[in-house]
Design a protein around this nucleic acid. Sequence first.
DNA 1: ATTAGCACTCTCATGTTGAGAGTGCTAACT
DNA 2: AGTTAGCACTCTCAACATGAGAGTGCTAAT
Lengths: 340, 340
Amino acid sequence: MEPLTERQRALLKIIVGDYISSAMPVASELVAGKYALKVSPATIRNEMAALEEMGLVTHPHTSAGRVPTDKGYRYYVESLMEEAELPQVEQLMIQHQFHQVELELDQWLRLAMAILAHSVQSAALITPPVSARSRLRHFELISVQEDLALMVLVLQGGTIKEQMLSFDRPLAQGELSAIANRLNPLFQEATAEQIQGKLNQLGGLERQVAAVLAKIMRQLDDLGHQEVYHNGLTNILSQPEFSQVDRARQILELLEQRSVLSAVMPQVLMSEGVQVIIGAENPWEKLRQFSMVLSRYGVEGEAAGVLGVLGPTRLPYWRAISTVRFMAQLMSRLLGELYG
Amino acid sequence: MEPLTERQRALLKIIVGDYISSAMPVASELVAGKYALKVSPATIRNEMAALEEMGLVTHPHTSAGRVPTDKGYRYYVESLMEEAELPQVEQLMIQHQFHQVELELDQWLRLAMAILAHSVQSAALITPPVSARSRLRHFELISVQEDLALMVLVLQGGTIKEQMLSFDRPLAQGELSAIANRLNPLFQEATAEQIQGKLNQLGGLERQVAAVLAKIMRQLDDLGHQEVYHNGLTNILSQPEFSQVDRARQILELLEQRSVLSAVMPQVLMSEGVQVIIGAENPWEKLRQFSMVLSRYGVEGEAAGVLGVLGPTRLPYWRAISTVRFMAQLMSRLLGELYG
DNA sequence: ATTAGCACTCTCATGTTGAGAGTGCTAACT
DNA sequence: AGTTAGCACTCTCAACATGAGAGTGCTAAT
């Protein structure tokens, strides 16, 4: 395909920008007037026809203005958008909000979502950070009933996991504590595999407990990203593209049954930088109508999660990308504090 | 107001029942035909007019059938509905599902929601159980950075709460453990107040840690019910009353900003049995369009939460009430196991 | 290469119409 | 007395018609 002329690039930029903010097909006259190009509407129409030829825009019907296609959005994101950096003022305001909140992972996640949703006016997604290979910091056994105990694992990075545990004979709290006290030093900073490896050196109850430990930690490593929090649904329901309810229901289904999203997340986890997935580029059928801007965040080699936004393809990409990038950096730094 | 005749009661029951399942205004001819009453449509019209006089039904316009008012639903729930007990088969199926899930509070909550939402075809709500007066079972201090530690509290009933804690000087894990080991026996089964009471007997770091403990537990007692999980939004978006998006957005807003719901929950927590709140009976403006069927669940004197469903006033009250009642009993029993 | 001019197409809001649904009333019936 | 047939009346809803407005694409002039 021939490269775009400078004027075509300018025009496409106007079309995408205007459509993103107005949700109305962009007409040639509007462009000529509002953006004071030095050419007439007729010329713009010719250029628009050219852009349409290249598949960057369409029009919904003969007498409607132009609307960007997914490909048009892609071109915009790749080479029309100026470099995305959130204004200093906003950066400071966000940081300020984080300072007012307690030192708690859960609160950070919630706040991050709220900020994303509000800034981009779309739905926000976030998965809690999970280590690819979690390390045990400490665990406790707490008697609940005679033969039932609660196992509490604290992992490096402060993740906590609880699990009920039943024994084939009654055990007093004293015995449980003894087991924990013996195993804890042995498994200091251990991974699931390391615990598994030491199983043979143990016997009886200790072995049983250690086996459960290993199992839980393996589970955490495998399906740590099942959980996807979300927020800001009301934002996207206010968008005109969701004026039919079934469209709205689609996206709700997407978020309620976690399956699709938890399939996307691992992919993002592998990639560097901000990922932009526009409409039909999406490999998952049900997401074809939507766009996502996602980024991995976390501490190198320790733990990582994914955060980002989800909305109609008419997403304010500039805001989305700059906010997501900034939030990922911020969350990474905060998380770093937890890992020392 | 005069009491209803037996025939009027039968008629109202038919109207409510039919409207709940069909969402269409109920016409006199339909009633005469489908339900084979021994009277003509004309008579039924007369009776309908009487019911309307009493404010139990309305019609949306002159040539439409009758629709129950909130008052009509109330009458139905109070004295027309046969006693609500979920069929044995369903009870067993539900119990079966709980057996297939691990012994974990979080999983129970999720499952309970899923079952409620599916059975009633509406949104399901649940708050985790919280003690009015939590008792400490055990706590741990885990070093995160030099002067930063993670405090993990395990409460009676298995609730877990984590909290970051910073000191004014560096502390090694050894020191932290020592503090925990000394305080734990002292605060066995203690409430926030009891811990607070013993503060004076302590000094230095121990006092500092104990103060935080007391503070966290007080917080838990006070605002334990902020958290309201929900599920099944897609169900209610499929209902015809939500075919306009702004109606759908209303309910989403309700659930996303927790304020309204967390105002309702404490009320339910005080009451015995299943609470049915129909439309305009609702003291909260934003809930006037909806009905809720809620119940307290939990272990007497130990911990309690709220579960239930939320939907349009045209809610299948019978299913809702019987399912909510059953789930509350089941969850109470399960929770009882945790408290021994 | 650009542009004015204009015919053409499609949408959208508005109005019209008629069928259908269901009521409320009246007068007859039991 | 209560019940019912009959029927006029009201309102909704879908289908169709209409016309203004929006915006394009093309042609021919600049």
